[in-house]
């Protein structure tokens, strides 16, 4: 892991009226790092992630994403990141190839480049027979692997993954993580949220958000040591149990 910082936030805060969804978030993420962003429902993960992707303006604080300022350069940020969520990532009524062509086009890639890289993705994921099929006919796990490949199609500096493996079968889930490792080895920073605690173990570092605040940030090993427990599950339970903001 190199020491180049690709995400730097300082007291990043987002308030909706009286409600402080994300409170003074401060952390650094390094190039090529797999950074797990954990927290209970309603802890403020989505809010924080939206700010980092340049989709929502913070109330106060500073952040620099892939070398661009979150306040003034959101358009530049969007060009240098990839994003994929559990809910929306691909067009269900387009074929595999059409999706690749579309997203390649959005990121300004040339026709030839799209074709070559698209072929490579299809081959790698073993989708040769499915290339002309509508995405909606694919099993969820395949869709998610394809969506991830497309999200890093334009070689972004950072890729944000919002619960990418929810509901995916255990075999495909591991294949998905193989893809994440590969991307990380290529120097792409992976910023990921998950509800699977075994996946938290695969991250280089983990941040735990509780009630809008980052309560803990360290490697899984250190976290377990600090809390004197055996599994990440227990770490999560220890931290999230004290959450006040249950109904929100």
């Amino acid at each position: 892991m190199e020491n180049e910082v690709v995400i730097k936030t300082e007291n990043l805060t987002k308030a909706f009226g009286d409600f402080i969804a994300a409170n003074a978030i401060t952390f650094d993420v390094y190039k090529g790092e797999i950074f797990g962003f954990l927290g209970a429902n309603g802890a403020g993960k989505t809010t924080a992630m939206r700010m980092l992707c340049g989709l929502s303006t913070p109330t106060s604080g500073k952040a620099n994403i892939a070398g661009f300022d979150i306040w003034t350069q959101t358009e530049e940020i969007k060009k240098h990141i990839g994003y994929m969520s559990q809910k929306f990532s691909l067009y269900e009524d387009l074929t595999v190839r059409e999706n690749i062509r579309f997203f390649g086009g959005i990121y300004g890639l040339k026709g030839k480049e799209i074709r070559q890289k698209g072929d490579a993705i299809i081959k790698k994921l073993g989708l040769e027979n499915e290339a002309k099929k509508l995405v909606k006919s694919l099993p969820l796990g395949w869709k998610q692997k394809l969506a991830f490949s497309i999200a890093i199609f334009h070689e972004p500096k950072i890729v944000f993954l919002d619960e990418p493996t929810g509901g995916v079968d255990p075999v495909t889930r591991r294949q998905f993580w193989d893809l994440i490792y590969e991307a990380s080895e290529r120097g792409i920073t992976v910023f990921v949220t998950t509800h699977y605690m075994d996946e938290a173990e695969y991250c280089n570092r983990i941040s735990m958000m509780v009630d809008g605040v980052i309560k803990a940030l360290d490697s899984p090993k250190k976290l377990k040591e600090n809390y004197g427990v055996e599994t990440m599950d227990e770490v999560f339970y220890e931290l999230a149990r004290g959450a006040q903001r249950k109904a929100d």
Partner: peptide, 12 residues
């Protein structure tokens, strides 16, 4: 799937 998308504490 009552627990899908629900965090570990709520699941428990």
């Amino acid at each position: 799937e009552p627990t899908t998308g629900v965090d570990a504490v709520s699941r428990k």
